[in-house]
Nucleic acid binder design. Structure first.
Lengths: 199, 199
DNA sequence: CAATTAAAATAGTGATCGCTATATTAAGGG
DNA sequence: CCCTTAATATAGCGATCACTATTTTAATTG
């Protein structure tokens, strides 16, 4: 059989493109070049393979994003770079469009509820990372005391999810970044990017 | 057999909750209380039924939203009411969470590409409606001349898609509206909602 | 080389997929 | 009432679903 990480790479790509429900075990075994029993002895089940493929893909595709937020950059700068990095991830030339996690398993059959909870938890964790960075910004005086960092994190989380959806629909990298530039004007204390008189 | 609109109502609800790929024809016939041949003689196919269910549901769930934008309200006011209306639609107590269109069929099997194009076209049309309102705002002097109305429409489109995703994950109405309030601060010419000194 | 163990392929499990041919029932007209 | 027509229900089409029992191959041992 092929290398385990190679198998996860192939599986992740299929799940990324077609989603959990849109990918069959026959698709997976065929793409991996293995037989069904090998898939089940190696990965356990379709759901367990999805879980492992998510972990694998997150580590490779967005593993470095945490460092952007953890860096010494000012919060606003870090956020901008973070979002631009996601936009790049959503529009990689030789990879499926959008994010594998942001817009995955939103609508689903009842039997896949546990898979949906899994992706929802990943999204929630991602927003908590953003919130933690914003909390730090408050404590460091970069954001006003009393800022609703939870809402701010969910706002930029919505932008991330919207970017993934639009990337799935064919949006290009430049479009997503223009969109980010608008979103960044909502940063507390920033003026809008549109030049001209403010009323 | 049951009334045609009643059938579409039941089908729309199932598709809304489970998505296109997560809903089987057996689910549909059982919920409608009809036999498979009746479904096919009445609606043609699963895909055609989905199309009709989308039309039916859009007309009923969001038919009045166009009027908000078409009204004489200032663009910023209209946008706020429009988004709040969507947030209400995303969190109706006795209906599936999220929007039936905004986050539908993003990832999909190859065989369902035509269904994905259908929902993508609906999303694109929805953003064009927003853009048209923003263009009107420019012509009426509510937005600065030269405003990138297309990007602004896609920005609020991303918010709409992000709200649907978060509603699917269990977000409540109030959370979505706080999120909208942040998004509205990106309106060109508006200051941020957070009080305090601007640098 | 023969025996044992481990890996892999074949073949197939019952269930369900979208969809339809055929049979049954019900309704209308003489 | 009988005959025709239309609507409905039953049953089942081939294909595919996630998943495995069994067999075959290959590698490792004495």
């Amino acid at each position: 059989m092929l290398d385990r990480d190679t198998g996860l790479d192939i599986a992740a790509r299929l799940f990324w493109e077609r989603g959990y429900e849109g990918t069959s075990t026959a698709d997976l075994t065929k793409a991996m070049g293995i037989n069904p029993p090998t898939l089940y002895s190696t990965f356990g089940s379709k759901e367990e393979l999805y879980r492992q493929a998510l972990d694998f893909s997150i580590a490779r595709e967005s593993g470095c994003r945490g460092e952007i937020l953890a860096s010494a950059l000012p919060a606003y700068e870090a956020l901008g770079r973070y979002l631009y990095n996601i936009a790049d991830g959503d529009t990689q030339p030789d990879k499926p469009a959008g994010c594998m996690v942001s817009t995955a398993v939103l609508q689903h059959a009842e039997e896949n509820a546990s898979v949906a909870r899994m992706t929802a938890a990943l999204r929630e964790a991602s927003m908590q990372v953003l919130k933690a960075r914003f909390d730090r910004a408050v404590s460091e005086g970069e954001l006003p005391a009393g800022t609703d960092t939870d809402t701010l994190a969910r706002f930029y989380g919505a932008i991330i999810q919207g970017m993934s959806a639009q990337a799935c629909d064919g949006a290009c990298n430049a479009l997503l970044k223009r969109l980010i530039d608008v979103a960044l004007t909502a940063w507390p204390g920033k003026r809008t990017t549109v030049t001209g008189s403010l009323d």
